[in-house]
Computed example of a mutant assay.
Amino acid sequence: MTGNAHDWPHEPVSVGLVGAGPWARMVHARVLAAGPETRLTSVWARRPEAARETAAPYGAAVAGTFEELLDTCEAVAFSVPPDVQAELALRAAKAGKALLLEKPLALDLPAARELVDAIDSAGVVSQLVLSNRYHPETRRFLAKARELDVSGARSCMVGGAFLGGDFATPWRLEHGALLDIGPHILDLLDAALGPVLRVRATGDPRRWVELTCEHEGGAVSQASLSGSVEVERGITRIELFGRHPELVFDGSALDHEESWPVLRREFATAVRTGRSGELDAHRGLRLQTLMAQALDEGR
């Protein structure tokens, strides 16, 4: 995962990491420390011992407070529950820091809007960790999909993360698959078939939820979401149909080690140029808006 320093003509972007849970250790800290585009400067978490364990392999400092972390970096990466992210990222934006954000932006639409307003007011760069979107295979699929006249699509993203283990966290168990994995599938369907104009949900997000999306241009897509089913491995699949051969995206087979260098390079480039890319906080707000609509329509 390391890069060639000669391929990056700028100083590494100094990044502070908020959070020290499994995802922070598995992805954020490791990827940001790999360089050459970024440098992990410090870690802050509610549990100091976890922050030390996350920072130590990379020689990063442990910040005693969130404010101390802000003093050590020019960008902040977040790996915390959505409600915590919404609060702290707002403060980081007001402090002029670029933001690497997890999905969803927040637990609800008003908090997501407040965060995006703060980002816009501060004029800081933002980027979302939508892991599938940085993989070359996903980008090839989307490029092909945009050339087609798609009539309809069916998709699923199901797995057993909520049944136990590192990712059976309180916010996921309470809010379920729509908020956790909904951003991934809605983002892909919206990008592949054209903007979603309306989305409806049926079922229980804590068990199994079905989404029906109506797209600009007339296509209709459906998505099955669950984090509470026993499967050998997680399933991510999208099938596009129309007056063309079926086009299939099988995300289950992706090796996300191919995604992380792309994410890191694009974030660092956005910071150094001062221009956010397509997958910024506004993209996160769009996805949050669609999820809120699905919840409202399902009541």
Rank of each mutant, 00 (worst) to 15 (best):
G59F: 01
T65G: 11
V125F: 01
E74L: 10
A106C: 04
L99Q: 11
K103R: 15
L100N: 11
T72K: 14
G64A: 14
A77Q: 10
E114D: 12
Q85A: 05
A92M: 11
D71Q: 15
E67A: 15
P81N: 04
Y134N: 04
P110K: 10
V80S: 00
S126D: 11
V62C: 06
G64R: 12
L100W: 15
E68V: 12
S121W: 04
P110F: 00
E87Y: 05
P81R: 02
A63S: 15
L70D: 06
T65Q: 09
L90F: 12
E67N: 14
P136R: 13
A111V: 10
D108F: 09
D83I: 03
V62N: 02
L109V: 13
Q127K: 07
G59N: 01
G96C: 15
A89P: 04
A112H: 00
G64E: 14
L105R: 00
F66M: 13
F66C: 13
F66T: 12
F78N: 08
L107N: 14
Q127Y: 00
V62E: 05
S121P: 02
L69N: 02
L100A: 15
Y134D: 02
C73W: 14
T72P: 01
D83W: 06
A60W: 06
Q85I: 07
A122S: 08
K103A: 11
D120P: 00
T65Y: 07
V125S: 03
Q127F: 05
A106F: 05
R133W: 13
K94Y: 00
C73Q: 09
A60E: 02
G59A: 01
L88E: 10
A98N: 08
S79C: 15
V124L: 03
A75K: 10
T138Q: 04
E102Y: 04
A106P: 01
V116N: 10
V76L: 10
G64Q: 08
G96Y: 12
V84E: 11
E74S: 05
L130R: 03
I119V: 15
S131P: 01
L101Y: 10
A93N: 06
S121T: 15
L105H: 01
L99T: 05
Y134S: 07
A86M: 13
T65V: 05
H135N: 11
D108I: 04
E87A: 13
K94A: 11
L100Y: 14
V80W: 00
Y134A: 08
E137M: 05
L105P: 00
A118V: 05
P104K: 14
A63H: 01
Y134C: 08
I119N: 02
A77E: 08
A98F: 06
G123A: 05
V125Y: 05
D71V: 07
L130A: 01
V76T: 03
P81Q: 04
G96F: 14
T138Y: 07
G96M: 14
V84T: 13
A111P: 09
H135A: 04
Q127D: 07
C73S: 13
A89C: 11
E114Q: 13
